Simulated assay, not measured.
Amino acid sequence: MIEVGSTLPEVDFSLLVNGEMTNPGTAELFNDKRVVVFAVPGAFTPTCSQAHLPGYVALADKIKAKGVDTVICLSVNDAFVMDAWGKANNAEEIMMLADGNGHFTKQIGLDMNTSDFGGLRSMRYAMLVEDCVVKKISVEDPGRFEVSDAESMLKSL
Rank of each mutant, 00 (worst) to 15 (best):
A43K: 03
G100N: 14
K66I: 10
L53N: 10
G118F: 13
V68D: 08
V35N: 01
N31W: 05
V40N: 07
L59F: 06
G86H: 01
C48N: 06
L120Q: 03
Q50S: 15
C48F: 02
F117R: 14
L110K: 10
N77V: 09
M82D: 03
L74K: 00
H103T: 15
V81C: 04
G55H: 02
L53F: 03
K66C: 12
K33T: 09
E93N: 15
G109Q: 11
F44D: 10
A88V: 00
D99M: 01
Q50N: 14
A58F: 02
V57S: 04
K66G: 06
L110R: 10
A126P: 06
A126V: 06
G100I: 04
M127S: 11
P54G: 04
D111R: 08
R121G: 09
A65W: 13
S75K: 06
D61M: 11
A126K: 00
A126N: 04
V37K: 06
N101G: 14
D99R: 01
R124N: 04
H103N: 14
C48P: 00
D83Y: 07
G119D: 01
C48R: 07
N101D: 15
A91I: 06
H103G: 14
V35Y: 02
A58L: 11
Q107F: 08
R34A: 05
Y125V: 12
D99F: 04
R124F: 12
K66W: 11
A79I: 06
F38H: 00
V68P: 05
E93W: 04
G42W: 05
T114N: 15
A91L: 00
A84G: 09
L59D: 05
L59R: 01
T70R: 13
M82C: 06
D111E: 15
D78P: 08
G118L: 13
A98V: 08
I94K: 01
L97E: 12
M96F: 02
A51F: 10
T70Q: 14
M112P: 07
D78S: 01
G67H: 09
T114M: 15
K106Q: 14
C73M: 12
L59T: 10
M112K: 12
P46C: 03
F44K: 06
F30L: 12
D116F: 14
S122G: 04
K106S: 08
V40Y: 10
A58E: 15
A43H: 06
A51K: 11
V40A: 11
I108M: 11
F44I: 06
D61G: 10
G102W: 00
V68L: 00
T70H: 13
T45L: 09
R34W: 08
G118H: 12
N113S: 14
A79R: 00
A43S: 05
P41N: 10
F38D: 09
L53R: 01
N89L: 09
I94D: 01
Y125Q: 09
T45M: 04
R121N: 03
V36T: 07
G100Q: 13
D78F: 03
N77M: 00
N77P: 03
L74E: 03
K62D: 15
Y56N: 02
A65K: 13
Y125N: 11
S49Y: 03
E93R: 12
V76F: 04
G42D: 08
N90Q: 12
F80V: 04
F38P: 03
G67L: 05
F117Y: 15
F44H: 10
F44Y: 13
F38C: 04
M123R: 15
C48L: 06
G42C: 01
R34M: 07
D83L: 07
N89E: 02
G119L: 07
D69C: 10
K33H: 03
L128Q: 08
